[in-house]
């Protein structure tokens, strides 16, 4: 038996596993957060105040709140979820920005206690955004 006869099938198996993992639609549970559409679809799985992360864009005009609680809604353009956030939001928090929230369902509202801002990979000065890019 030669080393090559072990290594070549090994590399093949590794490639098949990597392929299945990345293209087989199996990486759904490797995600860091759920989108509002997924969160609503899987609401039954996340009963009993099971915590998960929810990410979406803060709907413009939805932000109301006092010093230590904020109400707003997040959207992925298909589904919108109402959020009750306890605690002071980070300084970049504003309408139209993408946020990642940690918390659980309370009825049909998502009760969050931790808010992370997810910024995009685009960097532009305030005035000259390219025309096709929405701010």
């Amino acid at each position: 038996m030669r080393l090559r006869s072990l290594v070549i099938p090994g590399v093949g198996i590794a490639a098949v596993l990597a392929g299945t993992l990345s293209f087989g639609g199996l990486n759904g549970s490797l995600v860091y957060y759920l989108t509002p559409t997924e969160a609503v679809a899987q609401q039954a799985d996340f009963a009993d105040e099971r915590r998960f992360r929810l990410a979406g864009v803060v709907t413009p005009g939805s932000v109301t709140g006092s010093a230590d609680t904020v109400r707003f809604s997040v959207t992925d353009e298909a589904t919108t979820v109402d959020v009750l956030h306890t605690g002071a939001p980070p300084q970049l928090f504003q309408e139209g920005i993408e946020v990642v929230l940690e918390g659980s369902w309370r009825g049909s509202t998502f009760a969050s206690d931790t808010m992370l801002i997810k910024h995009d990979e685009e960097y532009y000065p305030p005035e000259d955004l390219p025309a096709e890019e929405p701010a």
Binding site: S22, N27, L30, V31, Y32, Y33, V100, L116, K118, H119, D120, E121, E122, Y123
Partner: peptide, 11 residues
């Protein structure tokens, strides 16, 4: 790129 993460994708 492979996973949905908090860190933004490459610019």
């Amino acid at each position: 790129v492979w996973w949905r993460t908090l860190h933004q994708p490459p610019t």
